[in-house]
Computed example of a mutant assay.
Amino acid sequence: MIVEADLDDLDEVYALWRELLDFHQSHHPIFRCKPGSEQVLRKELLQRLKDKDTKVFGYVQQDEWQGLVMANLKQAAPGFLFSKKGYIAETFIKAPCRGKGIGNELVEAAKNWLTDKGADHIELQVSVKNNTAIRFWEKQGFTPTTQHMMLDVSSKAKNS
């Protein structure tokens, strides 16, 4: 069953979010967390749960959180054809629960909420090393628009 997460669900949302982050650790350093960052990451999730333009949906069966999706609405400059951006952020289904349609239901809930809030398009980012996720999003109707790139200019990278 799809539920809208609230502040009382912080522990469950955090646990799934950490699984997602841990899953992506090997994809690129951008996905890595600093040691001892749990409190800061929990605070970030708490802010998202409080934000009126963000919604976290969970898939819950028998009190077990099996998946989640985070959706956000952002206003771009009104001069653009697409100026009310719906954004699907973190999306994750526990490994034993994959392939059962949970992702489809979560994405549908996010799309419905975003369009009800006035989104005229929906964007997302997906790891270029996550071929399964890329295929999933293509089946949902998403197509590539840009290539997200990153350059590490931190002092660690310069000294390497």
Rank of each mutant, 00 (worst) to 15 (best):
Lys84Ala: 00
Asn112Leu: 15
Gln47Ile: 06
Thr91Tyr: 07
Glu38Asp: 14
Lys85His: 13
Asp120Trp: 00
Thr132Pro: 02
Lys158Pro: 00
Met70Leu: 11
Trp65Ser: 10
Gly36Ser: 07
Asp120Cys: 03
Gly58Leu: 15
Val13Gln: 10
Asp63Lys: 00
Lys55Gln: 09
Leu41Pro: 00
Trp113Met: 01
Thr54Arg: 07
Arg48Cys: 06
Gln47Asn: 14
Arg48Val: 08
Gly58Phe: 06
Arg98His: 07
Val128Arg: 12
Lys74Pro: 05
Glu90Leu: 08
Lys52Tyr: 04
Ile88Cys: 12
Ala119Arg: 01
Val107Cys: 08
Asn130Ala: 05
Ser127Gln: 02
Tyr87Lys: 03
Lys85Trp: 05
Ile134Met: 06
Val40Asn: 03
Met149Arg: 05
Ser160Glu: 02
Glu105Val: 11
Gln62Pro: 11
Cys33Gln: 07
Ala109Asp: 12
Ala77Lys: 04
Phe82Thr: 02
Val69Ala: 11
Ala109His: 03
Ser155Arg: 10
Lys52Gly: 07
Met70Gln: 02
Asn112Phe: 00
Glu90Val: 07
Phe80Lys: 04
Gly86Lys: 10
Ile88Lys: 07
Phe31Arg: 04
Gly101Ile: 02
Asn104Tyr: 14
Ala76Met: 09
Asp152Phe: 00
Thr91Cys: 13
Lys111Gly: 00
Val128Met: 15
Ser37Lys: 07
Leu7Cys: 08
Gln140Thr: 00
Ala157Cys: 09
Ala157Asp: 01
Ser37Asp: 10
Gln75Leu: 07
Arg18Met: 12
Val126Lys: 03
Arg42Ile: 10
Leu81Gln: 06
Ser26Gly: 05
Lys34Cys: 05
Ser37Glu: 06
Leu73Gly: 03
Leu46Thr: 15
Gly141His: 01
Leu41Asn: 12
Phe80Arg: 04
Asn130Thr: 03
Trp17Thr: 15
Phe142Lys: 05
Asp51Gln: 01
Ala15Asn: 07
Ala110Ser: 09
Gly58Gln: 13
Gln62Trp: 01
Leu151Val: 13
Leu7Val: 05
Trp113Ile: 02
Lys139Ile: 06
Ser160Tyr: 01
Gly118Asn: 09
Gln125Tyr: 08
Gln25His: 08
Lys117Ala: 15
Phe142Cys: 01
Ala76Arg: 14
Glu44Gly: 15
Val3Trp: 10
Lys117Val: 00
Glu12Gly: 15
Leu49Gly: 03
Val56Ser: 09
Lys52Thr: 11
Leu16Met: 13
